[in-house]
């Protein structure tokens, strides 16, 4: 029957669509996220009239640069089928650590590498526990969460102001393009996104990340360097945590040990909304960026409405649920095909 149909030319376009869908089914959730983002932005513009302004959109990136960086690291981890609960507290720890060091007069060119190294160190700990001691990522990164939060309080129980010019420069400088602007923190975040996307798409390391998410055992039997890659994704996530600590410190002008409580959940929600499968093997860094923008837009809309910020989490929770159910349906369908 199908043989007859394929002879007409229109249907061969249909076939092309079908071939695309079959080859690239994993992009569909990300496309859905983009659609939701567009609907949100247009809806907000229609509702408020002054939402889609260069100023407002520039602020979306500025206010969520740290979240974007965390989401990139989290994407690597989740695509391998793992999870990293430590990112929020790692960010708080490196932030307060940096603030404390700057306050005691240590030069910035030492402080920044130490912040990054601090994040990477906790990431390494988690990665080693996961890879070499067969600890579930959930539990290992839980230890990282406790450790980061506790260490943040060990550094200081209260907030520390940052007055270091280079750090503040990151936030206060505005590169203007018409009415649009971007800060160095925003540029850093976008560079991290680009780097993450490139690494995932065209390096053997990135492909190994996907292979591990597909089947870790297979990846190992295929002779890929599974152990190194699995540790590395947590190091990358920790490094992103350290960098996010820097960005958040610059953004808020202070280090504070209570920063980032619950941020890990926001990050996971953004990554999932962006189309990454929590079971691993599928997902895109660029999708996670879309997820962050969806999150950012919802937050902004709620503050535009003057509503309780508690709604943010309720809506993000609902959106997360929607995506999970959709993903579940997609996976169920592709399972049935085999």
């Amino acid at each position: 029957m199908t043989a007859v149909v394929t002879e007409t030319p229109e249907v061969s376009t249909m076939d092309r669509v079908r071939t695309f869908a079959a080859r690239r089914a994993s992009v569909l959730p990300t496309l859905a996220a983009i659609a939701i983002l567009i609907v949100l932005l247009i809806g907000a513009q229609v509702e408020f009239g002054n939402f889609l302004t260069p100023r407002n959109l520039s602020a979306l990136l500025l206010d969520h640069a740290y979240l974007l960086v965390l989401a990139v690291g989290m994407t690597f981890v989740i695509v391998t089928g793992g999870i990293d609960l430590s990112v929020g507290s790692v960010m708080a720890f490196t932030g307060i650590l940096g603030a404390q060091m700057l306050a005691s007069g240590i030069p910035v060119w030492i402080v920044v590498p130490v912040m990054l190294a601090g994040g990477a160190a906790i990431g390494t700990l988690i990665g080693v526990l996961v890879q070499y001691f067969n600890v579930q990522p959930f539990i290992a990164s839980l230890a990282g969460l406790f450790l980061g939060r506790g260490l943040a309080y060990v550094v200081s129980l209260s907030s520390i102001r940052v007055e270091n010019p280079p750090i503040l420069w990151l936030q206060q400088t505005r590169f203007l393009i018409g009415e649009w602007y971007i800060t160095p923190t925003g540029i850093i975040a976008l560079v991290v996104v680009a780097a993450g996307a490139i690494v995932m798409a065209v390096t053997r390391f990135g492909r190994t990340v996907y292979a591990i998410g597909g089947s870790e055992q297979s990846a190992r039997l295929m002779g890929l360097s599974v152990a190194r890659t699995k540790v590395m994704v947590y190091v990358i996530s920790g490094l992103c945590g350290g960098l996010a600590g820097l960005l958040l410190t610059a953004y808020s002008g202070a280090g504070y040990p209570r920063y980032g409580i619950g941020t890990e959940l926001d990050v996971i929600a953004c990554v999932v909304i962006g189309g990454t499968l929590l079971t691993g093997g599928r997902g895109y860094v660029l999708g996670s960026m879309v997820g962050v923008f969806v999150f950012a837009t919802i937050t902004t809309i709620i503050s535009f409405m003057g509503a309780e910020q508690a709604w943010t989490h309720i809506i993000v929770g609902a959106l997360l649920l929607l995506f999970i159910v959709v993903q579940r349906a997609i996976v169920a369908r592709s399972d049935r095909q085999t």
Binding site: R23, S26, R207, Y210, A211, G213, G214, S215, Q217, S218, A219, L221, M222, G281, R282, T338
Partner: peptide, 9 residues
């Protein structure tokens, strides 16, 4: 049990 990655091409 084929040891390949079903999520990849």
């Amino acid at each position: 049990e084929v040891n390949l990655c079903a999520n990849l091409s």
